[in-house]
């Protein structure tokens, strides 16, 4: 029995009368690629937002490596090694790749009270390296993110998450709005995470994508987990049925 990297215990969330999460508990094991599936409003986004610090739970606990943690904002989550890649991109299109890689975590040459002069050479060099590490080919770290294709952007987002040595990578519908070819590439990224000691949660509407790259599938409906099985123990049909 392996100890889970993250445990969620009895999590509840209300939105002015709507009970969005009804006591969700979930263990995520190290190096696991977990596929999270559910219809709109099933509660999966809420669960993910709580893990990534975008929202806070009304009730419930999160443990990382067995220790109770308090995630109040995105910064807390990132400091705990939880990186999130969002559907609508966590990139600023009007800024360069190098600047995007380090938003909020810029390496500083000198600083006073957290404000200081950025080490731009290091930002460029590290970006080039991080991007090469995920097998993405981009000419210049100075190119604007707005000029990249959707798939390239997700690639840069994944490179960023890898660079900051994330332990848990949350990919929130990363293949939406992507072409077939680019989707295949993102799926490839997710598959390669396991070899790099990264645990991942992959959220998708597309059952085939989940079955292609995940070890385990968790389905949510009406704020609860309704199915939690290893991929080899279930089928697309069975998951469809419980939804």
């Amino acid at each position: 029995m392996i100890a889970p990297i993250i445990s969620i215990r009895n999590m509840h969330k209300w939105y002015s009368g709507v009970h969005a999460l009804r006591g969700v508990s979930l263990d995520i094991n190290p190096n696991e690629a977990l596929g999270l599936i559910g219809d709109n409003g099933a509660g999966k986004s809420t669960l993910i937002n709580i893990l990534s610090g975008a929202q806070t739970a009304d009730e419930g606990e999160i443990e990382i490596d067995g220790a109770l943690v308090n995630i109040r904002n995105p910064r807390d989550a990132m400091d705990l090694g939880i990186e999130t890649i969002y559907q609508y991109n966590s990139m600023v299109p009007t800024m360069s790749i190098a600047r995007n890689m380090f938003i909020g975590r810029e390496p500083l040459k000198v600083s006073l009270f957290g404000i200081g002069i950025m080490d731009q050479q290091k930002m460029r060099d590290d970006s080039v390296k991080a991007i090469a590490d995920v097998n993405l080919h981009l000419r210049s770290p100075d190119a604007l993110v707005g000029e990249l294709s959707g798939g390239q952007r997700q690639g840069v987002a994944i490179a960023r998450a890898m660079h900051f040595r994330s332990r848990l990578m949350i990919l929130d519908e990363p293949t939406n709005h992507l072409s077939v070819k680019e989707t295949a590439k993102v799926i490839g990224f997710v598959q390669s995470l396991k070899n790099q000691n990264v645990t991942s949660i992959f959220i998708s509407h597309n059952m085939h994508h989940v079955f292609e790259c995940c070890d385990r599938v968790v389905a949510m409906a009406r704020g609860k987990i309704v199915l939690d099985k290893r991929i080899e123990d279930t089928s697309i049909e069975e998951v469809h049925e419980v939804l």
Partner: peptide, 18 residues
């Protein structure tokens, strides 16, 4: 960098903890 990110795309700046 934070000013540009905040004005460039607020959701991303928020998500990155700025």
């Amino acid at each position: 960098n934070w000013i540009k990110a905040t004005g460039g795309f607020l959701p991303a700046a928020d998500a990155m903890g700025i």
